[in-house]
């Protein structure tokens, strides 16, 4: 389930956006290539930071563990001659690869559909600008910014059988994170659920910073929020393992 949501979500969203741009091409005709690209990629990135990425992670982390809750297979999994840390790490790595896959596909589809548009609708000057490297860096930064949330949600889904608890906590924390990031709270960078939003905001700042004319975008990969995200990810991952070791299997 997690796998297909990681594949279908980027495909559907990019397809939707593609249709939108295709039908409204006259509005966007003759804009500079870089602006068209930014509008195209930015439409996804804007929701990505605020809601899409955190919620996707809530769902992926849940799906990876719920399969065992549902089939009641934790007991048989942990009575196999396999070290507990391999089971734990394998699950985490799988959840991580799903997030990686999903973001990778967003990147791929954005570029793919953008180029397809430039062939089908030459009025859209997609071919004037190459966004690939900047977009790749943005998605890489988003991936890093999501690691803290991933570890926390992974642990929550491991501990709670039902979907509502991790979902409720994740949703509330995401809303809080978006608000904290948007009000520019001084310490927002310490709160994992604010990290994707902070990442997106930092992009916008760079864009504005250059004033009118052709926007110049640079991605500063390792900002302090990213470092916090990674530190939280590692700390919660290790903590989760020790909780698992001490926990009884029902």
């Amino acid at each position: 389930m997690g796998f297909w949501s990681a594949v279908l979500l980027p495909l559907l969203i990019c397809l939707l956006l593609f249709t939108g741009f295709f039908n409204k091409s006259e509005h966007l005709a003759n804009l500079p290539g870089v602006v068209v690209w930014l509008q195209f990629a930015g439409a996804i990135l804007a929701v990505m930071g605020s809601l899409l990425l955190p919620m996707l992670i809530v769902f992926i982390a849940y799906s990876v563990n719920s399969i065992e809750h549902k089939a009641d297979t934790w007991k048989s999994l942990f009575s196999l001659p396999i070290p507990k840390w391999s089971v734990y790490t394998a699950k985490y790595v799988y959840a991580f690869s799903l997030v990686l896959l999903c973001l990778g596909l967003f990147l791929l589809f954005t570029i793919g559909f953008g180029n397809l548009l430039s062939v089908l609708k030459p009025v859209l000057k997609f071919n004037e600008y190459h966004i690939e490297s900047i977009l790749a860096q943005t998605y890489l930064k988003l991936l890093f910014s999501a690691l803290g949330i991933l570890s926390i949600q992974f642990l929550l889904s491991l501990l709670f059988q039902d979907f509502l608890k991790p979902m409720g906590i994740g949703f509330t924390a995401t809303i809080a994170g978006v608000i904290l990031a948007n009000v520019d709270w001084k310490y927002a960078y310490l709160f994992p659920y604010a990290h994707p939003m902070l990442t997106i905001k930092s992009l916008l700042k760079n864009k504005m910073g250059n004033g009118p004319g052709i926007p110049q975008i640079t991605v500063d990969l390792f900002t302090k929020d990213i470092l916090v995200s990674m530190a939280v990810a590692v700390a919660v991952f290790i903590l989760g393992y020790f909780i698992l070791l001490r926990k009884s299997v029902k």
Partner: peptide, 8 residues
């Protein structure tokens, strides 16, 4: 153990 653990 108890009900067999099976992926349905």
């Amino acid at each position: 153990i108890e009900q067999p653990a099976i992926y349905l």
